[in-house]
């Protein structure tokens, strides 16, 4: 069954389908501030009556022209000949691809002796201190004040460093597009990385992220960080449940609330390309670089102080000579 036409009219006309957190959102004033999203797994039903879940379909529709036409043939990188081409598999929607920034994982669990199904929307978590953005060699990936982590497709060389350092390997590469084609396509770069940008542009125009706006069960909402955190905690208490995303990778601006533990949900997932797992409490790996980074910031002062002391001592010695 196709997603109802009515849902999409709502999205594209920017009509007032508002989340709980943004019930008074205006259609023109930018949605600003430190934002967070909440995904309530007790509410998401995966839109099982639809061919595609509404959020997935809305995301695909919004981003359908995101990837430009792919150069044919795609230049072969040297010496490692890895090419990632999804341009002929645009219809894939059960994993992350450069054409699909959101998918729904279906988790079948036995809870209290009863078989239950949970639907887990998966996309970029928009981490608080995202390694994918901070150590991008060209700063093509950046975290904005509103919490969105956004890849500038015009600057990205598609080296996939962001995917390697992301604990969930979220960004996906399309070879044969982007700035690298105009420089040294065989020797440097390999396309452009794509992922959810929290509909950063839409937020700037006062619109909600498409997946949130379209969700028929309001399983996804967006709001001020503090309010969303309080709401997540309240819902967790009410359902005697669990939160994912608050501490994972050093904290994220995506909070999942679930009546079953994420240990159990994670057991239904097998991490593979385009399909992240959900390891509870996963550490921010870049944390191990923080101590030396702090010393770097301190090193000019130490050098200067030692320089003054040594220079003064030497001067004194020379005077004595």
């Amino acid at each position: 069954m196709n997603v109802s036409r009515r849902f999409f009219l709502k999205v594209f006309a920017g009509s007032a389908v508002a989340s709980l957190a943004w019930s008074n959102v205006s259609n023109s004033a930018p949605i600003e501030g430190n934002l967070a999203t909440l995904i309530d797994l007790s509410l998401c039903d995966g839109c099982v009556n639809l061919r595609l879940p509404a959020c997935v379909q809305a995301c695909r529709e919004i981003n359908k022209n995101r990837v430009p036409p792919v150069k044919e043939p795609i230049p072969e990188p040297w010496p490692r000949k890895t090419i990632e081409d999804w341009s002929k598999k645009k219809d894939v929607f059960d994993r992350l691809t450069p054409y699909n920034f959101l998918y729904i994982h279906r988790a079948e669990l036995i809870v209290g002796g009863e078989k239950k199904t949970f639907f887990i929307p998966r996309r970029c978590m928009h981490c608080d201190n995202p390694a994918c953005a901070t150590i991008c060699p060209f700063s093509a990936n950046h975290k904005f004040k509103n919490g969105a982590v956004v890849i500038d497709e015009g600057l990205c060389f598609g080296g996939a460093k962001c995917r390697d350092v992301c604990p969930w390997n979220i960004p996906q590469r399309q070879s044969g597009v982007g700035i690298y084609l105009h420089i040294l396509p065989s020797f440097m770069g390999n396309g452009v990385m794509y992922k959810c940008d929290l509909c950063h542009e839409r937020l700037g125009k006062g619109k909600l992220p498409a997946c949130i706006e379209i969700c028929p069960r309001r399983a996804m909402i967006i709001g001020k960080r503090k309010e969303i955190e309080e709401m997540a905690e309240r819902r967790r208490r009410e359902m005697n449940g669990f939160i994912y995303g608050k501490v994972e990778n050093g904290g994220t601006s995506t909070l999942y609330v679930s009546p079953v533990s994420f240990e159990l949900l994670n057991k239904t997932m097998k991490k593979s390309p385009g399909k992240p797992d959900m390891v509870p409490g996963i550490k921010r790996r870049m944390e191990i670089t923080d101590p030396l980074g702090k010393v770097v910031l301190f090193s000019p002062l130490v050098g200067a102080v030692v320089g003054i002391a040594a220079g003064w001592k030497r001067r004194k010695e020379e005077k004595n000579d």
Binding site: S299, P300, L301, V302, G303, A304, V306, G307, I308, A310, G311, W312, R314, R315
Partner: peptide, 9 residues
């Protein structure tokens, strides 16, 4: 920084 300060001093 040591270099600059030391030789300036």
């Amino acid at each position: 920084l040591f270099h600059v300060i030391y030789h300036l001093a």
